[in-house]
C-alpha cells in the first residue's frame, strides 16, 4: 500500500513529501495540457495571419490605385470617361491600356488585366494590349488570377453601368488579347 497515510504511518519522510506533492504535480500537468490545447485550437497561425494582412493591404491599395487611375486625365477627359467613350465606339483603346499599364505594372509584376463589362459587351485591358469582345467572359476560376479591385462607370440612359474589375495575374500566366 502506497497512500499518503501509509507513508506517514511508516514514518517514511521522503514518501510523505512525494505524497503531498502529488496534487500539485497533477495540477501542473493538467494545466500544461489545457494551455497547450488552447494554444493549438485558439491561436491563429502566424503565416495565415500574415497572408490575411498582406492580402487586405494589397486589396486596399489596388482599390485606391484603380479609383485614382480612373480620374487621371487622358486627352483632357478623365480616364473613366474615356473608357465610356470607347465603349460607345468613340476613341482608341490603346492609350487607355497604356495609362493603366503606367499605374498597375509596377504593383503587379506578373501582369494584370482589367475587364470592363456590362450585360452585352466586355472590354479587356491587359499587360499585352486591349480588345473589345461582344459577350466576353471574366477569366475567373484559375488559381493564379486574383480579383483585387473593382469600380463602376455610368453609361447613358438605360444602358446601366460598366463594371470594371482589376485582376492580378500570378506567375506563368499571360492574358493574351
Amino acid at each position: 500500500m502506497n497512500s499518503p497515510l501509509a507513508s506517514r504511518l511508516r514514518g517514511n519522510r521522503k514518501g510523505i513529501a512525494i505524497d503531498e506533492a502529488v496534487p500539485a504535480i497533477v495540477f501542473i500537468i493538467c494545466s500544461a495540457f489545457v494551455l497547450f490545447a488552447f494554444l493549438i485550437f485558439h491561436s491563429v497561425p502566424a503565416k495565415q495571419q500574415q497572408q490575411d494582412i498582406s492580402s487586405d493591404i494589397s486589396a486596399s491599395s489596388a482599390e485606391r490605385d484603380l479609383t485614382r487611375a480612373l480620374t487621371l486625365p487622358l486627352d483632357g477627359v478623365p480616364l473613366g470617361k474615356a473608357i465610356v467613350d470607347a465603349y460607345y465606339g468613340k476613341g482608341e483603346l490603346k492609350p487607355i491600356a497604356d495609362a493603366f499599364a503606367a499605374t498597375f505594372s509596377s504593383s503587379n509584376p506578373y501582369g494584370w488585366t482589367i475587364v470592363a463589362m456590362n450585360s452585352g459587351t466586355t472590354i479587356f485591358f491587359s499587360t499585352d494590349g486591349s480588345r473589345i469582345v461582344k459577350g466576353g467572359t471574366i477569366p475567373t476560376g484559375q488559381s493564379s488570377i486574383q480579383e483585387i479591385a473593382s469600380a463602376q462607370l455610368p453609361l447613358l440612359g438605360d444602358d446601366g453601368a460598366l463594371t470594371l474589375t482589376l485582376y492580378s495575374l500570378g506567375p506563368n500566366l499571360v492574358m493574351a488579347p
Binding site: E63, T67, L153, P154
Partner: peptide, 17 residues
C-alpha cells in the same frame, strides 16, 4: 474612404454624361 471616392467618381461622371 476609397469606396467613398468610387461613389464620388461615379456621381461626377454620371453628371457629366
Amino acid at each position: 474612404l476609397y469606396r467613398a471616392e468610387d461613389a464620388q467618381l461615379y456621381i461626377s461622371l454620371a453628371s457629366q454624361s
